[in-house]
């Protein structure tokens, strides 16, 4: 769910123009920017503020409030590990420790080669097939260290 286009002011302006209209346009606009560029660059914050007649502080405040928006690009792959109660009851703490050991980074980190970003998430709604995760937008349930390892090995 994160794009990989390099930032271009021209493309950014095009996306902002397409999403600036309508009620409460800022969140859909920021989602569109991140979908294209994989993050919300500082230039985009400035341009969005100008387009919506907001201050840069207001737009920055929104970007920083929501966990989904990134100020910098993530790794090539994003693994979201659920850390909420239903997954805790089925061993997500041990699973997270396993991933941390294997990749050398835990939630909040990106591997040194920029291959995988690991993130904590609080509930994917897969609570009867716990523990669960989302890898590049693909949902995974009833995870074991072996199943997760296999999924990580298939990544480019």
């Amino acid at each position: 769910m994160h794009g990989s286009e390099p930032w271009s002011a021209e493309r950014g302006a095009e996306i902002i123009e397409r999403h600036r209209h309508g009620e409460g346009a800022l969140l859909p606009l920021l989602h569109a920017v991140q979908a294209a560029f994989g993050h919300v660059p500082e230039d985009a914050v400035r341009m969005a503020a100008a387009a919506l007649n907001l201050s840069r502080a207001e737009v920055f405040g929104v970007v920083s409030f929501y966990h989904d928006f990134r100020a910098a690009p993530a790794g090539r792959h994003v693994l979201k590990l659920c850390q909420a109660e239903a997954c805790q009851a089925m061993g997500c703490r041990a699973l997270t420790a396993h991933v941390t050991e294997r990749l050398g980074v835990g939630p909040g980190g990106t591997t040194g080669d920029g291959r995988v970003t690991v993130e904590a998430t609080y509930c994917l709604g897969l609570c009867a097939t716990a523990p669960s995760a989302m890898l590049d937008g693909q949902v995974l349930g009833r995870l074991t260290p072996a199943r997760l390892d296999a999924a990580l090995e298939r990544l480019a």
């Binding site: 409460g24 969140l27 929501y66």
Partner: peptide
């Protein structure tokens, strides 16, 4: 939404729709 649990609270949700 954009990953904020508190937006499940109705008035926070309204502010979020408002951008």
């Amino acid at each position: 939404g954009a990953g904020a649990y508190v937006c499940g609270e109705e008035t926070a949700l309204l502010d979020s729709i408002e951008g």
